[in-house]
Protein backbone atom coordinates (compact mmCIF):
# COMPACT_ATOMS: atom_id res chain seq x y z
CA UNK A 1 0.00 0.00 0.00
CA UNK A 2 2.63 2.53 1.11
CA UNK A 3 6.33 2.28 0.45
CA UNK A 4 8.93 4.83 1.40
CA UNK A 5 12.21 4.18 -0.39
CA UNK A 6 15.54 5.77 0.58
CA UNK A 7 13.88 9.04 1.57
CA UNK A 8 16.26 11.92 2.24
CA UNK A 9 15.28 15.48 3.13
CA UNK A 10 17.68 18.30 3.89
CA UNK A 11 17.06 21.73 5.37
CA UNK A 12 20.05 23.77 4.25
CA UNK A 13 23.04 21.52 4.76
CA UNK A 14 21.38 19.64 7.60
CA UNK A 15 19.77 16.31 6.70
CA UNK A 16 16.51 15.97 8.65
CA UNK A 17 15.93 12.50 7.21
CA UNK A 18 18.57 10.17 5.77
CA UNK A 19 17.83 7.21 3.50
CA UNK A 20 14.67 6.10 5.29
CA UNK A 21 12.91 3.05 3.86
CA UNK A 22 9.87 1.17 5.14
CA UNK A 23 6.65 -0.41 3.97
CA UNK A 24 3.08 -0.30 5.30
CA UNK A 25 0.94 -3.10 3.94
CA UNK A 26 -2.78 -2.67 3.29
CA UNK A 27 -4.70 -2.42 6.55
CA UNK A 28 -1.52 -2.28 8.62
CA UNK A 29 -0.96 0.08 11.56
CA UNK A 30 2.61 1.32 11.26
CA UNK A 31 4.14 3.75 13.74
CA UNK A 32 7.12 6.03 13.28
CA UNK A 33 8.60 6.23 16.77
CA UNK A 34 11.40 8.50 17.87
CA UNK A 35 12.33 11.47 20.02
CA UNK A 36 11.53 15.09 19.06
CA UNK A 37 13.52 16.23 16.04
CA UNK A 38 14.27 12.71 14.76
CA UNK A 39 12.60 13.40 11.40
CA UNK A 40 9.37 11.44 11.82
CA UNK A 41 7.07 14.35 10.96
CA UNK A 42 9.24 15.15 7.93
CA UNK A 43 8.69 11.59 6.68
CA UNK A 44 4.95 11.93 7.28
CA UNK A 45 4.79 15.21 5.39
CA UNK A 46 6.78 13.72 2.51
CA UNK A 47 4.22 10.91 2.32
CA UNK A 48 1.42 13.52 2.28
CA UNK A 49 3.18 15.57 -0.39
CA UNK A 50 3.60 18.53 1.96
CA UNK A 51 7.41 18.22 1.87
CA UNK A 52 9.41 17.55 -1.26
CA UNK A 53 12.17 15.03 -0.56
CA UNK A 54 15.67 15.69 -1.88
CA UNK A 55 16.06 12.06 -2.69
CA UNK A 56 14.12 8.82 -2.57
CA UNK A 57 10.60 7.83 -3.46
CA UNK A 58 7.12 7.56 -2.02
CA UNK A 59 4.92 4.85 -3.54
CA UNK A 60 1.19 4.55 -2.92
CA UNK A 61 -0.57 1.48 -4.32
CA UNK A 62 2.68 0.66 -6.14
CA UNK A 63 2.57 3.99 -7.93
CA UNK A 64 5.36 6.52 -7.62
CA UNK A 65 3.73 9.67 -6.20
CA UNK A 66 6.93 11.46 -5.18
CA UNK A 67 6.43 14.36 -7.59
CA UNK A 68 2.68 14.69 -7.18
CA UNK A 69 0.79 17.36 -5.24
CA UNK A 70 -0.97 16.59 -1.92
CA UNK A 71 -4.39 16.86 -3.57
CA UNK A 72 -3.45 14.11 -6.03
CA UNK A 73 -2.48 11.48 -3.44
CA UNK A 74 -5.65 10.48 -1.57
CA UNK A 75 -4.20 10.54 1.91
CA UNK A 76 -5.90 11.66 5.11
CA UNK A 77 -4.04 13.59 7.76
CA UNK A 78 -4.62 14.45 11.42
CA UNK A 79 -2.18 16.92 12.90
CA UNK A 80 -0.88 17.47 16.42
CA UNK A 81 -2.93 20.65 16.83
CA UNK A 82 -6.51 20.99 15.66
CA UNK A 83 -6.83 21.72 11.96
CA UNK A 84 -10.63 21.84 11.86
CA UNK A 85 -11.81 24.77 9.78
CA UNK A 86 -13.09 27.26 12.34
CA UNK A 87 -15.77 28.82 10.15
CA UNK A 88 -17.40 25.45 9.38
CA UNK A 89 -19.41 23.16 11.63
CA UNK A 90 -18.21 19.60 12.18
CA UNK A 91 -20.58 18.37 9.45
CA UNK A 92 -19.44 21.10 7.05
CA UNK A 93 -15.83 20.18 7.75
CA UNK A 94 -16.53 16.59 6.73
CA UNK A 95 -18.62 17.57 3.72
CA UNK A 96 -15.87 19.91 2.57
CA UNK A 97 -13.40 17.01 2.74
CA UNK A 98 -15.78 14.88 0.69
CA UNK A 99 -16.39 17.53 -1.99
CA UNK A 100 -13.53 16.60 -4.37
CA UNK A 101 -14.47 12.91 -4.09
CA UNK A 102 -18.28 12.89 -4.11
CA UNK A 103 -20.13 15.19 -6.51
CA UNK A 104 -23.66 14.49 -5.28
CA UNK A 105 -24.57 16.74 -2.35
CA UNK A 106 -27.05 14.25 -0.88
CA UNK A 107 -24.47 11.49 -0.93
CA UNK A 108 -21.96 13.78 0.73
CA UNK A 109 -24.40 14.45 3.55
CA UNK A 110 -25.13 10.75 3.92
CA UNK A 111 -21.46 9.79 4.02
CA UNK A 112 -20.71 12.57 6.48
CA UNK A 113 -23.40 11.25 8.81
CA UNK A 114 -22.07 7.69 8.50
CA UNK A 115 -18.52 8.64 9.36
CA UNK A 116 -19.57 10.95 12.21
CA UNK A 117 -21.50 8.01 13.60
CA UNK A 118 -18.51 5.74 13.20
CA UNK A 119 -16.30 8.00 15.33
CA UNK A 120 -19.16 8.71 17.77
CA UNK A 121 -19.41 12.46 17.20
CA UNK A 122 -22.75 12.58 15.37
CA UNK A 123 -24.42 14.60 18.12
CA UNK A 124 -21.88 17.41 17.56
CA UNK A 125 -22.42 17.56 13.81
CA UNK A 126 -23.77 21.11 13.87
CA UNK A 127 -21.26 22.42 16.39
CA UNK A 128 -18.45 24.81 15.50
CA UNK A 129 -14.91 23.69 16.38
CA UNK A 130 -14.39 26.29 19.10
CA UNK A 131 -17.21 24.70 21.09
CA UNK A 132 -15.72 21.19 21.00
CA UNK A 133 -13.69 19.60 23.79
CA UNK A 134 -10.20 18.29 23.00
CA UNK A 135 -11.46 14.73 22.59
CA UNK A 136 -14.40 15.77 20.42
CA UNK A 137 -12.13 17.82 18.18
CA UNK A 138 -9.87 14.80 17.71
CA UNK A 139 -12.85 12.61 16.82
CA UNK A 140 -14.12 15.22 14.35
CA UNK A 141 -10.71 15.38 12.70
CA UNK A 142 -10.55 11.61 12.45
CA UNK A 143 -14.02 11.59 10.87
CA UNK A 144 -13.02 14.25 8.37
CA UNK A 145 -9.82 12.45 7.34
CA UNK A 146 -11.59 9.07 7.10
CA UNK A 147 -14.63 10.34 5.20
CA UNK A 148 -13.19 10.11 1.69
CA UNK A 149 -11.62 6.69 2.30
CA UNK A 150 -7.97 7.63 1.94
CA UNK A 151 -5.41 5.05 0.84
CA UNK A 152 -3.44 5.85 3.95
CA UNK A 153 -4.24 7.80 7.10
CA UNK A 154 -1.42 9.89 8.51
CA UNK A 155 -1.54 10.78 12.19
CA UNK A 156 1.03 13.27 13.46
CA UNK A 157 1.12 12.91 17.26
CA UNK A 158 -2.68 13.20 17.43
CA UNK A 159 -2.80 12.56 21.18
CA UNK A 160 -0.58 15.48 22.13
CA UNK A 161 -2.23 17.97 24.44
CA UNK A 162 -4.86 15.54 25.76
CA UNK A 163 -4.95 14.48 29.40
CA UNK A 164 -3.98 10.94 30.31
CA UNK A 165 -7.50 9.49 30.38
CA UNK A 166 -8.42 11.12 27.09
CA UNK A 167 -5.18 9.97 25.47
CA UNK A 168 -6.03 6.37 26.31
CA UNK A 169 -9.61 6.82 25.13
CA UNK A 170 -8.69 8.39 21.78
CA UNK A 171 -5.79 5.96 21.30
CA UNK A 172 -8.13 2.99 21.72
CA UNK A 173 -10.65 4.70 19.46
CA UNK A 174 -8.06 5.15 16.70
CA UNK A 175 -7.18 1.47 16.94
CA UNK A 176 -10.86 0.44 16.89
CA UNK A 177 -11.56 2.61 13.84
CA UNK A 178 -8.50 1.22 12.07
CA UNK A 179 -9.58 -2.36 12.71
CA UNK A 180 -13.20 -1.60 11.73
CA UNK A 181 -12.40 0.28 8.52
CA UNK A 182 -9.24 -1.59 7.56
CA UNK A 183 -7.56 1.70 6.62
CA UNK A 184 -3.77 1.71 6.48
CA UNK A 185 -2.43 3.98 9.19
CA UNK A 186 0.90 5.70 9.56
CA UNK A 187 1.12 7.03 13.10
CA UNK A 188 3.83 9.32 14.42
CA UNK A 189 4.67 9.48 18.11
CA UNK A 190 7.50 9.96 20.55
CA UNK A 191 5.67 7.87 23.16
CA UNK A 192 6.89 4.28 23.12
CA UNK A 193 3.98 3.01 25.23
CA UNK A 194 1.52 4.51 22.76
CA UNK A 195 3.42 2.95 19.86
CA UNK A 196 3.58 -0.49 21.44
CA UNK A 197 -0.11 -0.49 22.35
CA UNK A 198 -1.55 0.27 18.91
CA UNK A 199 0.97 -0.74 16.26
CA UNK A 200 1.29 -3.79 14.05
CA UNK A 201 4.77 -2.60 13.23
CA UNK A 202 7.04 0.12 14.51
CA UNK A 203 9.81 1.97 12.67
CA UNK A 204 12.20 3.53 15.18
CA UNK A 205 13.92 6.70 13.99
CA UNK A 206 16.81 8.50 15.60
CA UNK A 207 18.60 11.58 14.33
CA UNK A 208 17.00 11.23 10.90
CA UNK A 209 17.97 7.59 10.44
CA UNK A 210 16.10 4.33 10.77
CA UNK A 211 17.33 2.36 13.76
CA UNK A 212 15.13 -0.70 13.51
CA UNK A 213 11.73 -1.77 12.21
CA UNK A 214 9.65 -4.65 13.48
CA UNK A 215 6.70 -5.76 15.54
CA UNK A 216 6.35 -4.18 18.99
CA UNK A 217 7.23 -7.56 20.51
CA UNK A 218 10.38 -7.87 18.41
CA UNK A 219 11.52 -4.32 19.24
CA UNK A 220 10.89 -4.81 22.94
CA UNK A 221 12.37 -8.26 23.24
CA UNK A 222 15.12 -8.11 20.64
CA UNK A 223 16.31 -4.54 20.11
CA UNK A 224 19.17 -4.48 17.64
CA UNK A 225 20.71 -1.15 18.58
CA UNK A 226 21.62 0.55 21.81
CA UNK A 227 19.21 3.38 20.99
CA UNK A 228 16.25 1.04 20.50
CA UNK A 229 17.10 -0.91 23.64
CA UNK A 230 17.08 2.29 25.68
CA UNK A 231 14.25 4.18 23.94
CA UNK A 232 11.73 1.35 23.74
CA UNK A 233 10.92 0.22 27.26
CA UNK A 234 12.82 0.58 30.49
CA UNK A 235 15.75 -1.62 31.45
CA UNK A 236 18.88 -2.02 33.50
CA UNK A 237 22.08 -1.82 31.51
CA UNK A 238 25.34 -3.65 32.24
CA UNK A 239 28.48 -2.94 30.16
CA UNK A 240 31.13 -5.58 29.53
CA UNK A 241 32.91 -7.88 27.09
CA UNK A 242 31.36 -10.96 25.47
CA UNK A 243 33.01 -14.23 26.37
CA UNK A 244 32.43 -17.99 26.43
CA UNK A 245 31.35 -17.97 22.77
CA UNK A 246 28.55 -15.55 23.50
CA UNK A 247 27.13 -17.34 26.54
CA UNK A 248 28.22 -14.69 29.01
CA UNK A 249 29.34 -11.09 29.36
CA UNK A 250 32.15 -10.16 31.75
CA UNK A 251 31.22 -6.81 33.23
CA UNK A 252 33.63 -3.99 33.95
CA UNK A 253 32.96 -4.71 37.65
CA UNK A 254 34.45 -8.20 37.18
CA UNK A 255 31.15 -10.05 37.63
CA UNK A 256 29.75 -12.26 34.90
CA UNK A 257 26.21 -12.15 33.52
CA UNK A 258 24.90 -15.23 31.72
CA UNK A 259 23.20 -14.29 28.43
CA UNK A 260 22.29 -17.71 27.01
CA UNK A 261 24.24 -17.38 23.76
CA UNK A 262 22.81 -13.98 22.87
CA UNK A 263 26.33 -12.65 22.37
CA UNK A 264 27.18 -15.26 19.77
CA UNK A 265 29.47 -13.91 17.10
CA UNK A 266 30.62 -11.05 19.31
CA UNK A 267 33.24 -12.99 21.32
CA UNK A 268 35.78 -10.55 22.72
CA UNK A 269 33.76 -7.49 21.71
CA UNK A 270 32.42 -4.83 24.03
CA UNK A 271 28.67 -5.07 24.52
CA UNK A 272 25.82 -3.97 26.76
CA UNK A 273 23.39 -6.31 28.46
CA UNK A 274 19.86 -5.01 29.03
CA UNK A 275 17.34 -6.59 31.41
CA UNK A 276 13.71 -5.43 31.59
CA UNK A 277 12.44 -4.64 35.13
CA UNK A 278 9.58 -7.14 34.84
CA UNK A 279 12.13 -9.92 34.20
CA UNK A 280 13.98 -9.24 37.44
CA UNK A 281 12.66 -10.84 40.62
CA UNK A 282 13.45 -10.06 44.23
CA UNK A 283 14.21 -13.71 44.95
CA UNK A 284 16.81 -16.26 44.05
CA UNK A 285 14.31 -18.74 42.52
CA UNK A 286 15.92 -20.87 39.86
CA UNK A 287 17.44 -17.89 38.04
CA UNK A 288 20.95 -18.27 36.74
CA UNK A 289 21.87 -14.64 37.33
CA UNK A 290 21.55 -13.86 41.05
CA UNK A 291 23.06 -10.92 42.88
CA UNK A 292 22.62 -9.66 46.43
CA UNK A 293 22.10 -6.02 47.24
CA UNK A 294 20.14 -3.38 49.08
CA UNK A 295 16.93 -1.61 48.06
CA UNK A 296 17.87 2.07 47.65
CA UNK A 297 14.65 3.49 46.24
CA UNK A 298 11.03 2.44 45.84
CA UNK A 299 8.83 4.51 43.50
CA UNK A 300 5.14 3.74 43.79
CA UNK A 301 3.20 3.83 40.51
CA UNK A 302 -0.10 2.53 41.89
CA UNK A 303 -0.61 -0.84 40.24
CA UNK A 304 3.13 -1.55 40.56
CA UNK A 305 6.22 -0.10 42.15
CA UNK A 306 9.71 0.30 40.79
CA UNK A 307 12.49 -0.78 43.14
CA UNK A 308 16.13 0.17 42.60
CA UNK A 309 18.54 -2.31 44.12
CA UNK A 310 22.20 -1.44 44.54
CA UNK A 311 24.25 -4.65 44.18
CA UNK A 312 27.91 -5.01 44.98
CA UNK A 313 28.80 -7.08 41.92
CA UNK A 314 26.81 -5.56 39.05
CA UNK A 315 25.76 -2.11 40.29
CA UNK A 316 22.17 -0.85 40.19
CA UNK A 317 19.38 -3.18 39.08
CA UNK A 318 15.78 -2.03 38.49
CA UNK A 319 12.86 -4.36 39.20
CA UNK A 320 9.09 -4.15 39.26
CA UNK A 321 7.22 -5.25 42.37
CA UNK A 322 3.56 -5.17 43.36
CA UNK A 323 2.14 -1.74 44.15
CA UNK A 324 2.33 -0.75 47.82
CA UNK A 325 4.14 -4.00 48.66
CA UNK A 326 6.24 -4.66 51.75
CA UNK A 327 9.52 -3.90 49.97
CA UNK A 328 11.23 -1.10 51.88
CA UNK A 329 14.23 1.10 51.19
CA UNK A 330 17.32 -0.16 53.07
CA UNK A 331 16.15 -3.78 52.94
CA UNK A 332 18.73 -6.44 52.00
CA UNK A 333 17.50 -8.49 49.06
CA UNK A 334 18.64 -10.71 46.23
CA UNK A 335 17.78 -9.97 42.61
CA UNK A 336 17.57 -12.71 40.02
CA UNK A 337 16.89 -12.98 36.31
CA UNK A 338 17.14 -15.65 33.65
CA UNK A 339 19.91 -15.57 31.10
CA UNK A 340 17.23 -16.07 28.42
CA UNK A 341 15.75 -12.66 29.36
CA UNK A 342 19.03 -10.86 28.78
CA UNK A 343 19.27 -8.60 25.72
CA UNK A 344 22.76 -8.19 24.30
CA UNK A 345 23.64 -5.26 22.08
CA UNK A 346 27.18 -5.00 20.72
CA UNK A 347 28.85 -1.62 21.14
CA UNK A 348 29.08 -0.99 17.41
CA UNK A 349 25.32 -1.49 16.92
Amino acid sequence: MLEVRNLTKKYGNEAAVKEISFVADEGEFVTLLGPSGCGKTTVLKAVAGLEKPDNGKVLLRNEDVTGTKPEERNVGIVFQSSSLFPRMTVRENVEYALKPHVTDRGERRERAEDVLGLVKIAEKADTYPDSLSGGEARRAELARALSYKPDVMLLDEPLTGLDRALRTEIRDEIKRIQVETGVTMLFVTHDQEEAISVSDRIVVLNDGEKEQAGTPRRLYRRPETRFVAEFVGESTRFDGVVEEGGKGVRLTTGAKVGVNGRGEGDEGNKASVYVRPENVELEEGDHNNVFSGEVVEVTEMGSYAEARVETERVGEVITKVDGFSDVREGEDVVVGFDDSDAIVVADDA
Binding site: G49, L50, I77, F79, S81, A97, K99, H101, A145
Partner: peptide, 21 residues
Protein backbone atom coordinates in the same frame (compact mmCIF):
# COMPACT_ATOMS: atom_id res chain seq x y z
CA UNK B 1 -2.51 27.88 11.11
CA UNK B 2 -0.84 26.45 8.00
CA UNK B 3 -2.06 23.01 9.01
CA UNK B 4 -5.57 24.08 7.99
CA UNK B 5 -4.39 24.68 4.46
CA UNK B 6 -2.30 21.51 4.42
CA UNK B 7 -5.27 19.46 5.59
CA UNK B 8 -7.41 20.97 2.83
CA UNK B 9 -4.80 20.08 0.20
CA UNK B 10 -4.61 16.45 1.34
CA UNK B 11 -8.42 16.24 1.05
CA UNK B 12 -8.09 16.89 -2.68
CA UNK B 13 -8.59 20.66 -2.86
CA UNK B 14 -6.11 22.62 -4.97
CA UNK B 15 -4.31 25.77 -3.80
CA UNK B 16 -6.93 28.19 -5.18
CA UNK B 17 -9.88 26.29 -3.67
CA UNK B 18 -7.96 26.06 -0.40
CA UNK B 19 -7.30 29.80 -0.41
CA UNK B 20 -10.93 30.58 -1.20
CA UNK B 21 -12.54 28.11 1.22
Amino acid sequence: DEHLEQASRTMGHGPVATFWN
